[in-house]
Design a binder for these strands. Structure first.
Lengths: 194, 194
DNA sequence: CGTCTATTTGAATGTACTCAAAAGCGGTGG
DNA sequence: CCACCGCTTTTGAGTACATTCAAATAGACG
């Protein structure tokens, strides 16, 4: 079934009884987006927390000059959303757009609230996910401050080889916080070095 | 009492019965550190989640060249810790050092676990705190990528005027990801512009 | 007043950016 | 099958932003 990957993901963190699994399934809905479609749009209120079942998304933001800044990618077994917007019901800061045909499991705000109440451990699940996400985000800030672009690119390649394959280079440059031309030059240099 | 600020902080997010407040108080311990003392040391396992009652701390990390990189500051009513280390019991990536004489309320890992079990809503409290922290951290990444140093400094000054007053300039430079000399030049420029 | 730390200033350098243009790479249609 | 189109990547020249190193100044504290 479509939700298999979600269930097995969740049970890596908490145990679910059969009944709880049923409750979970009642509160989640699968949806497929085509390549290019938006799951979240900057300015709209974000309605869902999304778990990627298949496909690939980018989360980005457009600055005043219309430049795109990639915040993160999400592939199978990742969560993606504009959490700030979902919780506060304020307009989203970010866009989440599909880079491929993408299937997600969606939780509305209300579904999450009910799950927090009805499934003990669900709140813990999200606390743990958030702890990891926060720690990773902080590491990324330091990495940007302490390491030159070439090494950041190498680390990215090591850490996310799948994403490197699936995503156009100019988006990776944006994620790394450098221009696409500069990333191209870094790559040329790396080829030369080998 | 010393814990007043902690209680009133917590009750901004969740409601606590008298009994729950008592349980909370049983699981927390106050401690005062002198200026310069370390609450967490890079390489040691982090033992506490800390809530700052008074004073000011910096969280930083030393890279291979021995350079210091400031990750965050914490003043009254902020949390500070190396969460990743606390939860995983792995060596901490960061140092937390007091920039002033600082009083903190400390929760051990075990105390937190018990509080999660015994005080419904406590898990929610940390989920909410983490959501905010994560959202802020992501915004900071984008800010670093999309905005030149001068503006980043101005935003910092606007957002954290207290910290700007209490913390030496070279640490703010480090937090912003620029050299202390460059921040000094930015400031000179700002004075000239007024 | 002297010492220690923090900040400022200046010159030379480096890293990364912009703009512009060319080359590569799929896919589509004639 | 190839010519063309749109999109991505590469290349090059000139520039801007930020760094390093070194030295001078300013502040804080005993």
């Amino acid at each position: 079934m479509e939700l298999t990957s979600l269930i097995s993901y969740i049970t890596r963190f908490i145990t679910l009884s059969e009944k709880e699994t049923d409750i979970l399934i009642e509160h989640v809905k699968c949806r497929t987006y085509q390549k290019g479609q938006y799951i979240v749009q900057q300015g709209d209120v974000c309605r869902y927390e999304n778990f990627v079942i298949s496909g690939c998304t980018k989360t980005f933001f457009l600055d005043e000059d219309g430049r795109e800044h990639v915040v993160m990618f999400a592939i199978e077994n990742w969560w993606t959303s504009d959490l700030g917007s979902l919780i506060s019901k304020q307009p989203a800061d970010y866009n989440v757009q599909c880079l491929e045909k993408t299937m997600v499991a969606q939780f509305t705000y209300e579904a999450l609230e009910r799950l927090y109440d009805e499934v003990p451990g669900f709140e813990r699940l999200f606390r743990i996910i958030l702890q990891k996400a926060f720690a990773a985000s902080q590491k990324r800030i330091i990495l940007n401050h302490s390491v030159p672009a070439k090494e950041r690119y190498l680390k990215f390649r090591m850490q996310y080889p799948e994403i490197e394959q699936r995503v156009p280079q100019y988006l990776i440059a944006s994620y790394l916080g450098i221009s696409k031309q500069f990333l191209s030059k870094i790559r040329a240099q790396l080829v030369y070095e080998e």
